[in-house]
Write a protein that binds this DNA or RNA. Structure first.
Lengths: 117, 117
DNA sequence: GAGCCATTTCCACATTCATCGAAATGTCAT
DNA sequence: ATGACATTTCGATGAATGTGGAAATGGCTC
């Protein structure tokens, strides 16, 4: 992932409403959520929400698809992976000791619940 | 990690120079780097760099310590863990299948090189 | 094709952010 | 104490971002 994309993605997430919206999408998974449902849960006017969703789209963090009258937004898994990967790669110079974030002890609530548990 | 902190951290990273500076700190590990070294590598005027480093500090992503005439900045591992953890938690509703970012296949360049390789 | 519904576009406004030179601060060596 | 060095603070400027109402668009149902 290129630095410019990373900056765009981080910038897109760096806002209260957008982060909240994104989190809803993450929790919703591949099925996504219609714009209206997001607006309702966040309590923002629709025009404002559209503005924020566009940012997520433009940053490549989400996709849009139409289902009859509704427009459904969903997260883009690869983008999240790219983001997390970029932030953590070469941590501490790429040492093997290097935990998710250079501190095995503090690394409790981390994403790597892939295999076990 | 509280949403407000996450937004602050993301906002701090959502800038070309700050992301670059932060990456230097991540790669440098716990020892950190003096402000001057960062400024030199990024090619920004010192006053501008200070501005950006303050943002990282204020967001809790970095720490500052003085060593004689230099001021040394270092990353805060727990902050990175918190950030990554927040973004990925409850992915796809907390399913066990849920890889780092809901897509095991795409999750190649991820942080979990902890143990092996 | 009339009317309703979900969502987006347009617009104008206030706010916040980024930049960098010049001057100030803190620290060390002599 | 003086001078040199590393870094920060100040201040002014231009640019980008967030907001929400009103109007426009695309799509379904009757």
């Amino acid at each position: 992932m290129e630095p410019k994309q990373v900056v765009a993605a981080l910038g897109a997430l760096a806002h209260e409403h957008r982060l909240a919206a994104y989190k809803l999408l993450v929790e919703a998974g591949p099925e996504g959520l219609p714009a209206g449902a997001i607006a309702e849960r966040l309590g923002t006017p629709s025009s404002t929400l559209t503005f924020h969703l566009q940012q997520l789209l433009h940053a490549g963090l989400a996709t849009q698809r139409r289902v009859s009258r509704q427009i459904i937004y969903a997260m883009v898994p690869a983008a999240m992976n790219g983001l997390v990967g970029y932030l953590t790669e070469n941590c501490c110079g790429g040492e093997a000791i290097c935990a998710p974030a250079c501190d095995p002890v503090a690394a409790t609530v981390h994403s790597c619940k892939t295999t076990a548990a």
